[in-house]
Design a binder for these strands. Structure first.
Length: 588
RNA sequence: GGGGGCGUAGCUCAAUUGGUUAGAGUACCGGACUGUCGAUCCGGUGGUUGGGGGUUCGAGUCCCCUCGCCCUCGCCA
């Protein structure tokens, strides 16, 4: 080792010891006769001092040091003179009096400084990620990620899970996200697909008798990016045999409790709360509601029907819904213009027709341009149902159920943040269960799998597969943390006949099923145990535990919204020769 | 594919209704300084205002196109 200690560990007890530190020059303060350098590594910072007593030559060389030079400094640990102790620094009681300095490497003037107070633009940070990753904040995020993964591994190891790796080069599956494809050289015009998840492999492992599987699995989905979505991301993927939904949920409950305790010092009370999908949509308009605050959706369809307000009546009569939220005490915070902005937001982002609103005046009466369409008694009933008090702002959306869900979910989320209805540091964990098996396929008609095509229906819903697929509920469960889907899983179909039936409903014909999933259908006939599992989005979980805004903050080398890596330039051009070998021609 | 925001010195930002030579802090370079810790003080270098085109006597500012980054809807079993 070129060093005896790190830049974060020297304390008063080391005074008098001869040590060598290595690190990056964080800052330097040249006072001519004496020069201070704050030397930084990922463990911390230590002040190293160059003075004439340490050798004139060392002092001279020290004067040439600049930001981010890499140096090795040897000398004695000394107590700082009285009055010069730095309480802001963990190592602030001591300093290193250098008598041997070696410049291990110089550094160009960095485009930005790792400990500067002003954060540079994210594109610059991504281009020079090696400097960005030196930032203590980034290092904390990386270490948090490491610790969380370590806890996951340890916890699951204790529960007899074994880590099995599954292929990255697989085959394309018909449903789900767009695949990343990898051309095969030896089978020209055939392609591998990168895994969207190890789903089928882990089911095969259950059939193979590895009854508790886990993997920190890289997954790939070629879809548009978001603040919480990258084209490649990491899942804690696990699967268990001889279990039902409660067992899987129980394992994750325990894991969340341990993470919360060890990372945040929080005691979670188990079991975590559960809510059905239908309840979540009714109360919050979304399958991953943020339960850190209230402002639940309230249905008003029956009352709205009695009004003279044409929009309300029309929607109600055509089978739509009128639902609303009460932004407590927010009447004064949203002017006419502010409400216009909210209206604009739900129209443009969610396709809502409009936003109806009432402000509750001092007398507790509902005031609004549309109030004249409502009889006084009706207004009172509305106020009562909405739990309206003076100063409240009531917002209503009248539309198809789905649109009211989206628009009010959007409003609730936005108002929750704008009105600071929750402490951003607070953490809330819960489950949403019993998702529908199927959703309407907007583009092609018919049904599409809500989760994936291997999801088992609830036992009591098996009859409904034929009679009423829409009402059929799945043995599915999503982990929700702070209004974010942190993971999801299901109990799988372990019966070949049932699997075929579900494929049939999804419009996957016999030939396609055999072609794409033949191996699974085969395997299901060779002693498949009942099994189920879950996958947690590790990037998202780390982001949430770290209180961070973007998934890019917890990924060492993330991609931009357009899927590029600003540091390496990926994706990039390839040689014509490479394409020839693959038998591929670029169209453009 | 749609909507929105941003782009000015290495970095973070400013620049009045379109108006003189585009400024500040910081970084960088040079000088001074033996106890600083966001060191301080003095001096200096540094600009294709993302790129292209247009309107105008005159464009960082207005218009069109384009590139990049971010947020978002669609999409993401």
């Amino acid at each position: 080792m070129l060093r005896t200690h790190t830049c974060g560990e020297l304390r008063a007890e080391h005074i008098g010891r001869e040590v060598t530190l290595c690190g990056w020059v964080d800052t330097y303060r040249d006072h001519s006769g004496v020069l201070f350098v704050d030397l930084r590594d990922r463990y911390g910072r230590t002040q190293v001092v160059f003075a004439p007593e340490g050798g004139e030559e060392n002092l001279k060389v020290a004067k040439s040091l600049r930001s981010e030079y890499v140096i090795s400094a040897t000398g004695k640990v000394a107590a700082r003179p009285e009055g010069t102790v730095n309480a802001k620094l963990a190592t602030g009681e001591i300093e290193l009096r250098v008598d041997r300095l070696e410049v291990l490497n110089r550094c160009l003037t960095p485009p930005f400084h790792p400990t500067a107070q002003d954060l540079p633009g994210e594109d610059l940070r991504l281009k020079h990620r090696y400097i960005d990753l030196r930032r203590p904040r980034m290092q904390r995020a990386m270490m948090l990620r490491h610790r969380m993964i370590k806890i996951m591994r340890d916890y699951l190891d204790e529960l007899a899970f074994i880590d099995v790796e599954t292929p990255i080069l697989g085959r394309s599956t018909p449903e789900g996200a767009r695949d990343y494809l990898v051309p095969s050289r030896v089978q020209q015009s055939a392609f591998y697909a990168l895994p969207q998840s190890p789903q089928l492999y882990k089911q095969i492992l259950m059939i193979a008798g590895y009854d508790r599987y886990v993997q920190i699995a890289r997954c790939f989905r070629d879809e548009d990016l978001r603040a919480d979505r990258q084209p490649e991301f990491t899942q804690l993927d696990l699967e268990m045999a001889f279990v039902d939904a409660d067992d899987v949920i129980g394992v994750i409950d325990g894991l969340m409790a341990r993470l919360a305790k060890e990372i945040l010092g929080l005691e979670l009370s188990l079991p975590l709360k559960r809510m059905t999908y239908d309840e979540a949509m009714e109360r919050f308009g979304h399958d991953a509601p943020d339960l850190r605050f209230g402002m639940e959706l309230t249905d008003l369809t029956d009352l709205a029907q009695q009004s003279d307000f044409r929009v309300f009546r029309g929607v109600a009569e055509s089978g739509g819904r009128i639902r609303g939220i009460n932004a407590k005490g927010a009447a004064g915070k949203y002017s006419r213009k502010g409400i216009d902005e909210l209206t604009n937001y739900i129209q443009e982002d969610f396709g809502a027709q409009g936003l109806a609103w009432f402000k509750v005046d001092e007398a507790g009466k509902l005031a609004s341009p549309i109030a004249k369409n409502f009889e006084a008694g009706l207004l009172e009933k509305i106020a009562q149902r909405m739990d309206a008090e003076s100063g409240d702002l009531l917002l209503f959306v009248a539309d198809k159920f789905e649109v009211t869900c989206k628009a009010l979910y959007g409003l609730r989320k936005r108002l929750g943040a704008e009105l600071k209805l929750y402490d951003p540091k607070q953490m809330h964990f819960s489950w949403v269960v019993e998702f529908p098996m199927f959703a309407h396929d907007e583009e092609e008609g018919g049904w599409t799998a809500m989760h994936h095509p291997f999801t088992a229906p609830r036992r009591q819903d098996r009859e409904r597969l034929t009679s009423d697929p829409e009402a059929c509920r799945a043995q599915a469960y999503d982990l929700v943390v702070n209004g974010s889907e942190a993971g999801g899983g299901t109990v799988r179909i372990h019966d070949q006949q049932l699997q075929r039936q579900v494929f049939g409903l999804l419009g996957i014909d016999e030939a396609t099923a055999k072609d794409r999933f033949g191996f699974l259908l085969d395997a299901l006939q060779y002693g498949a145990p009942p099994h189920g599992g879950i996958a947690l989005g590790i990037d998202r979980l780390v982001m949430l535990f770290g209180g961070l805004e973007s998934i890019r903050e917890v990924i060492a080398f993330p991609k931009t919204q357009r899927g590029t890596d600003l540091m390496t330039g990926a994706p990039g051009q390839v040689d014509a020769k490479q394409l020839r070998e693959l038998g591929i021609k670029a169209a453009r």
